[in-house]
Design a protein around this nucleic acid. Structure first.
Lengths: 105, 105
DNA sequence: TGATTATATAAGTATATCGTTATATATTTG
DNA sequence: CAAATATATAACGATATACTTATATAATCA
C-alpha cells in the first residue's frame, strides 16, 4: 500500500484530536449514539456531531438509526489499516456500560 | 502499553502535517541535515527548523553536529512504537541521493 | 397531525498552527 | 580574532480548527 503523504497526514490530523480519538476508542467497545458521547466526553451535542461528521467523511465510522437514536460504529471492514493506528489507543471500557443501553424514549 | 488519549492525540497531531511527515519519511532513508530538507521539501529554512524542533521535543528525532552541519536522525531506539505509525508512510527514496553527501563548505 | 426529541447545520468567535521576514547564535576557517 | 555559513529563534500575519449559541431537520409517538 502506498498512501500519499498528503492523504496520510490528513488521516493523522483527524486522529490528532482528543475528542475524536476518544470517540474511536469508545466505538472499539461497542456502537454508541450521539447522546452517549455527549455524556461520556463532556462535550456539547453540536461539538460531538461535528466531530462525528469528520470521522464519517473520512470513512472511519458509519451510522445507522435505531428508533430515536442514531448509532455510530467503526468502519472496520472497509478500513482494516485503521487498526494499525488504533493499536495504542487506550481502553475506555471503564467509562461506559458494557451493554448497549436502551435509552428511555 | 497504555498511553493516555492526551499524549496519543498530541502524537497524532504532530504527524498530521505534510512537512513533518515527509521529514520522518526521509529520515527513514538516511540521516539528513537541515539544508537538505530545505532543498527537498521546498520549505524555508526557518520553517524546517521549526518543524524539526517539534519533532525533537516529542523525542521522535535527535541531532548531531558534523562540521558546519547539524544532522538529524530518527530516534528509533527510544521509541520503537513509532514504527507502528510509520508503516504506511510512503517511501521517498527517489527524491534524495542514496549516500550521505558531503556538502561543500 | 402536532408535539417531542435526537441529531445536524449555520454562524460567529476564540485560539492554535503554519509560514514569512528579520535577526540572533554558534561553529568553522582564513 | 574576524568573516562566512548553517541553523535557531522571535515576531508577526494569515489561515485553519474547535467551541459556542441559535436554529433547522427528521423521526417517533400521542
Amino acid at each position: 500500500m502506498d498512501i500519499s503523504i498528503e492523504i496520510l497526514s490528513e488521516r493523522f490530523k483527524l486522529l490528532g484530536d482528543k475528542t475524536r480519538l476518544s470517540i474511536l476508542a469508545l466505538l472499539r467497545e461497542r456502537d454508541m449514539c450521539v447522546c452517549e458521547f455527549v455524556e461520556v466526553l463532556h462535550c456539547s451535542q453540536p461539538g460531538v456531531s461535528q466531530h462525528l461528521k469528520k470521522l464519517k467523511q473520512a470513512n472511519l465510522v458509519r451510522e445507522y438509526r435505531k428508533g430515536h437514536w442514531i448509532y455510530y460504529q467503526l468502519n472496520k471492514e472497509e478500513i482494516p489499516e485503521l487498526t494499525i493506528y488504533m493499536v495504542d489507543i487506550p481502553n475506555l471500557k471503564k467509562y461506559i456500560d458494557q451493554e448497549q443501553v436502551e435509552c428511555e424514549a
